[in-house]
Amino acid sequence: ERDGAFGLGRAAHAEELAAWDVDVLPDGRGLPEGAGDVFTGEEVFAAKCASCHGDFAEGVDNWPVLAGGFDTLADKDPVKTVGSYWPYLSTVWDYVHRSMPFGEAGTLTADETYAIVAYILYSNDLVDDEFELSSENFAEFEMYNKDGFVIDDRPDREYADWSAEPCMENCKDEVKITMRSVFLVSEPP
């Protein structure tokens, strides 16, 4: 028994930690060394990503749109993309490297991932076509919507107002149906 613990499990090997601990933090910690430019990214994207996400990261059918949608977040139908919505570049790198392509995750090299991320930035008009993303310049890059998020403010904004003893009688003068269900999902026979 160690330090009041149970002595269960075994020490993790360095190779095991390296294999599984691949997350990248917003400040860039966790990134492997490497680099990739927009031109290379366009080729890799065309080969491995464009069948779902489109040649210009604009999305095919219902697959996610990765580019565009700037300044639509307050619209009736916001278009939330890497460019218009995502606050950190680290998330793009981490998620692509770890979980894409869909159905063949974990197969991209570090350099391929840098290149794809560079191409996604280019598709969002956030860099020019000469841009190269690397472990060196990664931390300098600021996303368009980096200041677009607030920490959960329900306690201040809602809980105080919604914790009074509720009305039980004569709570309103009349009630009208204002909307009926749009999609009638029928029971199978």
């Binding site: 977040l73 916001p78 939330k80 998330t91 677009g148």
Partner: peptide, 15 residues
């Protein structure tokens, strides 16, 4: 970030 964040009417989002 991309998911499980909740967009307000003014376009800012809660995380």
């Amino acid at each position: 970030t991309s998911k499980y964040t909740d967009v307000y009417e003014d376009g800012t989002a809660r995380k």
